[in-house]
């Protein structure tokens, strides 16, 4: 009896298949570019998990070790690189992702993705307050502008990521552009503010020009100095 199983011949089948990959195009300085990636990850952690990523290095001139370091840095962020393009092949070591060529740009349609990325309801970028803001109240709105139809009382404060608009009298504190938005401004119908701040630069009531008191005014940043001028 012949027990030797006759191995059926395995054919090596080669098939072509195309995938859509994200293309990262790092720019110098790489450190800042990585910081940008970190910011994206901070907003939506796991965004790149399970997504094919290709590194396009045509915009930078990196040595072999620098490429290895970059790929390593991405790995640390759980971003795995599928391939690299836009670089001479001899700069890629054997343990690096392979060189890719002939990529075509296409529109990425976000497939109904896994677990975490439930479509976030679009957050409003402005906040409207129809009632006066009373002493002791603190309105914090980092997502954008705050508009107050009434007055802001002495001892109240408005903190906004964007600009602040007050159609009544501002007697309390207004802090605009708190997360680094130096283009933010503060407008009010009547200025009697205790403190105005834009992007960390501030003026207290004592520093505000007495001539402005009780007039419509706006405050903005010009370089490192806060300007307060009458509105009309």
């Amino acid at each position: 009896m012949d027990v030797r199983a006759d191995p059926t011949r395995q054919l090596v089948r080669l098939r072509g298949r195309s995938y859509v990959a994200f293309v990262f195009s790092p720019v110098v300085p790489i450190v800042e570019w990585l910081a940008e990636i970190d910011a994206t990850l901070a907003r939506s952690p796991g965004y790149f998990v399970g997504k094919p990523i290709v590194l396009d290095l045509s915009a930078v001139d990196l040595s072999s070790s620098a490429i290895a370091h970059l790929v390593g840095s991405l790995n640390e962020r759980n971003i795995r690189v599928l391939g690299i393009e836009g670089v001479e092949e001899d700069r890629l070591a054997a343990n690096m992702p392979p060189l890719l060529t002939g990529g075509r740009a296409c529109v990425i349609t976000r497939s109904e993705s896994t677990q975490k990325s439930e479509p976030e309801p679009k957050k409003p970028t402005s906040l409207l307050l129809e009632n006066p803001v009373r002493s002791g109240q603190s309105i914090v709105f980092m997502e954008g502008d705050v508009t107050v139809l009434g007055s802001v009382g002495s001892g109240a404060e408005i903190v906004a990521g964007g600009s602040i608009h007050i159609y009544g009298t501002l007697r309390g504190r207004a802090m605009a552009g708190v997360n680094g938005n130096s283009a933010a401004r503060i407008y009010c119908q009547k200025i009697e503010a205790e403190l105005l701040a834009i992007d960390g630069y501030y003026q207290t009531a004592e520093e505000i020009d007495v001539a402005l008191r009780s007039r419509p005014a706006q405050a903005w940043l010009e370089g490192d100095t806060m300007k307060i001028t009458p509105l009309n």
Partner: peptide, 8 residues
């Protein structure tokens, strides 16, 4: 000012 706070 205290009244303003109380109204809030």
């Amino acid at each position: 000012r205290d009244s303003d706070r109380i109204i809030g």
